[in-house]
Write a protein that binds this DNA or RNA. Structure first.
Lengths: 256, 256
DNA sequence: ACACAATGTGCGCAATACGAACGATAAGTC
DNA sequence: GACTTATCGTTCGTATTGCGCACATTGTGT
């Protein structure tokens, strides 16, 4: 075992390793093997194995031959957060109302490290875009309107650091490749108070995002998506601003 | 430490204890203290403390003075499940379509131990009932239509065991108090292929549920709620059956 | 069928984590 | 406000838990 002299005795390293195993089930694969998990977490296979078998015993994973998958029980961990923060009463109805008025899905998002984390969404019947992301999904920070609007809400120094450090995979032909260009787009979003991207994350899809959080609060944004060229964005952005204003007014996100 | 002779060396007990700490944040309180967690988990306060501080370091909990709350990061654990099982593409659109046709929220649920676990829902704008539960919420098994329908889908012996063992708190004046009466209602649901309750979990609210799963599969149901006495249920149950048929057809739930 | 690569598992050993005891804080009483 | 008691949070000695190496087993390529 690592004999780091400044080992923090307040931290249970076995628990931290186990959580890394759980987090490795990030949705990018339906199932994972012990060896997959050892690679994903950097742990010895024996260590990853104990983590996985513990999760199976607790009911969070199901084992099928030599592969493991998450069970629905992990949803109850999210349920604790959603219930404690009254998302069902305070957030979802606001998103539903404005999504119905907009005629498109609306998504609420925060930043989690170098990713966008989706917290809630209202998905409408027969919306113009349905890209399959859900509550809990992670999206890239640099090529989505949600991500750029989140960065626009952060202090300049943190924004610059994240633009420099966050991954920059090229999702589409139209994706900006130059970090300086992305920083400039973020600066524009900061000034205009909204962000629009077009076809940088998914081809043929325009993304719109506006801030929900007030300055000094943890950055939160709402956004929507439309087919590229499917109409002017002014009224749509206005609708997103109204949604953000309602979320601020019912103070649903103050404790995030 | 417990010196259980048959300690399973494949299980990391420290990780299991840590997961019990995480699961203690079940949404029933906005924040919990160390002492709260020690009581909820049955652990020594020092043990619970290491669990909590580990979760803070990993970003799943936020500490404010002597109290702790879940952060949105726990949603990413759920996101792994939802993404891996394509809920955004395969489940949500079906629920959205049928909820729009029904004019009311539709919820998909499974059983998790002695509770109902909500897996997904489509919530409509201005639906007749909005009780604030979300994905990941737990509901009682014995007094909800979802719970009774789930029990109706289980083998007789398991159903009898759960009816005997599951908690029987009295949520409303109309709640059945006699376990034999509940078993009989479940038997009726099994025969008729649907379940209706009225005001047993929330006063003035009728619940409807029908099975999604096929015999031999893990029990799953869909349900909706309406104000008591707000109209006949036949057409509504029909709509729920159509929803269940669509979910079966796209095979979204086969791997749960 | 064989060789090699990859993966899964057992168990010796020591690092990690438990929890008793003590310190700190909160609550109740006068 | 002072004092007592109860409750909660933290430290650190000790031993139990869990790490990871080496071996066993399984999978893959020729």
């Amino acid at each position: 075992m690592s004999s780091v002299a400044t080992q923090d005795r307040n931290i249970a390293s076995t628990f931290a390793k186990g959580m890394a195993v759980l987090a490795a089930f990030d949705g990018s694969h339906e199932t994972l093997s012990l060896a997959d998990l050892a690679r994903a977490t950097g742990q010895d296979r024996a260590t990853a194995r104990r983590g996985v078998l513990t999760l199976v015993q607790l009911g969070y994973l199901h084992q099928n031959d030599r592969r493991f998958r998450l069970t629905p029980k992990v949803l109850s961990l999210a349920g604790g957060f959603l219930q404690a923060n009254a998302f069902g009463r305070q957030v979802q109805p606001v998103l539903n109302y404005h999504a119905a008025m907009l005629g498109a899905d609306i998504t609420l998002a925060l930043r989690d490290g170098e990713n966008v984390l989706l917290l809630a969404q209202s998905t409408v019947r027969d919306g113009p875009v349905s890209y399959g992301f859900t509550l809990g999904s992670r999206l890239p920070l640099l090529h989505t309107s949600l991500g750029r609007m989140l960065l626009a809400c952060e202090p300049e120094s943190l924004m610059q650091e994240l633009v420099t450090r966050a991954p920059l995979p090229r999702h589409t032909e139209r994706a900006l490749e130059n970090r300086a260009d992305i920083a400039q787009a973020i600066g524009t979003a900061r000034i205009s108070g909204s962000c629009v991207t077009d076809g940088e994350f998914e081809t043929g899809i325009a993304g719109l995002a506006v801030p929900v959080s007030r300055p000094g609060e943890r950055a939160a944004v709402v956004g929507a998506s439309f087919p590229s060229g499917s109409g002017p964005h002014d009224a749509r952005l206005q609708r997103l601003h109204l949604c953000a204003a309602d979320l601020r007014q019912n103070q649903a996100l103050e404790k995030l």
